[in-house]
Design a binder for these strands. Structure first.
Lengths: 187, 187
DNA sequence: TCCATATTGCAGTGATCGCTGCGTTTGGTT
DNA sequence: AACCAAACGCAGCGATCACTGCAATATGGA
C-alpha cells in the first residue's frame, strides 16, 4: 500500500541515523520526565539533552504533545506478553499482574501523566495497545467455546481500578492485589 | 492559630476585589481550556483573558501547575451533595450517579486532564474531596451499625472505572451504568 | 471618617521559545 | 561506484515568556 505508483515518491527512510535520533529523543524525554516532573518540557531542552538540534525535533514531531503521544505509543506497546494459560481466568490474572507490575514503575507514571496532560490523543496512546491485548485474550476464550464478557466492560473493571490507583492515588497496586480484580469480574 | 501574637501581623484579605480577581482567573482558565485544549496555557494569556495583569497571577499562584491545582480543588469540592437515603446501597448508587453526571461535562474532563499533566498534586486535587465524601458515606453506614468496605477499596471499584472511562477512553459513563458498579462492590 | 497595609497595576529586562532558509551529510537505489 | 532524495546541522529572526522594582489603589478595622 505504501509502495508508490508514480515514479517520484516520498520514500520514508527508517534507516540507521533516523532510528538513532528517534531513540535518543525518546530517551531524553524519559530522562527529563524522571528528573524534574514539574519542569517545563520544551523542545530546545529535549533536543539539547538528546544531543540533537532542535530543528530536527520540530520537523519530525512538530510539538511536544505529538512527541509525547509517539513515546507513549511505543512505550506501551510490546512490553506485556499476552499469556496463554489455557483458561480465561488464568490468562486475565497473569495479564493483569503484568500490567500492575509495569504500572509500578515511577517513570512510567510520569510519562503517563504527561501524556494525559496533552489531551485525548495522549490518553489513547497509553491504553490502545492494552485494549488490543485484552481483545486478543477474550477472542482466544471465544475460540475455546467460552462466552467472555465484552472488551469494554472487562477494561472498565480491570484497567479502571489499576490506572486510577496509579495515576490519581499515586499508590500503584501490587500484582497480587490486581489479580483479585479478576474475581470481581468473573464472579 | 493564625492569630498574631505580635502587634504587626500579615492579615490575609479575602475581601471583594481579591475574590473577584480569583474568580476571573479561574473562569479564564476554564474558558481557555474549553476553547483550545492543545493551546499553550501560559500565564500572560490567562491574565489577558481574565482582564488582570500578569503580575497578579505570578504573585498569587506562582506557576500554571499551582494555579491548575487550585482550580481543580475548588471545582471538585462542594459540587456533589452527599446523599442520605437510609441505606448504604442507596447512598452509594445516588452518589456514583452524581459523580458520573459531573464527569460527563467535557469541560470538566479537559480541566482534569490538564491537572493530571501537572503531576501528583494536580491529581490529588481532583480526587481528594471525592474520597472525603466517600468516607462520610461509609462512616454513616458504620454509625447505622453496618460493616461497610474500606474507603480505598470502595474508591478503587467505584471511582476507578468511572475515571478510567472518562479520562482515558473519552466516553464518560452514564449515571445508570455507574450505579451498576455498586452491585459489583456490595455483591 | 481615616489610616495602615494587603493587593494590584505599570513599565521594562534578560532569557527562551518556536520557527525558517540554506548548505551539508546520510541512506537507499541503480 | 554514482546518483538523488531524505534527513540533519547551522545561524538567525520575531515573538513571547517569566520575573522584578516602584507607584497607585482598594480593603478592613479603629
Amino acid at each position: 500500500m505504501e509502495t508508490n505508483s508514480s515514479g517520484t515518491s516520498t520514500r520514508p527512510r527508517p534507516g540507521g541515523r533516523s532510528a538513532r535520533v528517534r531513540y535518543a529523543v525518546h530517551r531524553a524525554v524519559t530522562e527529563l520526565l524522571a528528573e524534574d516532573p514539574a519542569e517545563s518540557l520544551t523542545i530546545p531542552v529535549i533536543a539539547a539533552r538528546a544531543g540533537v538540534h532542535a530543528t530536527t525535533v520540530y520537523r519530525r514531531w512538530g510539538s511536544v504533545p505529538e512527541l509525547l503521544s509517539d513515546i507513549a505509543t511505543s512505550r506501551f506497546s510490546g512490553d506485556v506478553v499476552v499469556p496463554d494459560t489455557g483458561s480465561l481466568r488464568g490468562d486475565l490474572e497473569r495479564w493483569v499482574g503484568q500490567v500492575a507490575t509495569d504500572l509500578a514503575d515511577p517513570d512510567v507514571l510520569k510519562l503517563m501523566r504527561a501524556a494525559v496532560g496533552t489531551g485525548p490523543l495522549g490518553c489513547d496512546a497509553c491504553v490502545a495497545d492494552r485494549h488490543a491485548q485484552l481483545a486478543a485474550i477474550l477472542d482466544r476464550e471465544r475460540s475455546r467455546g467460552g462466552a467472555p464478557p465484552e472488551v469494554e466492560r472487562t477494561a472498565d473493571l480491570l484497567l479502571g481500578p489499576l490506572y486510577y490507583r496509579a495515576v490519581f492515588i499515586d499508590r500503584p497496586a501490587g500484582p497480587d492485589w490486581a489479580r483479585t480484580l479478576v474475581a470481581g469480574l468473573l464472579g
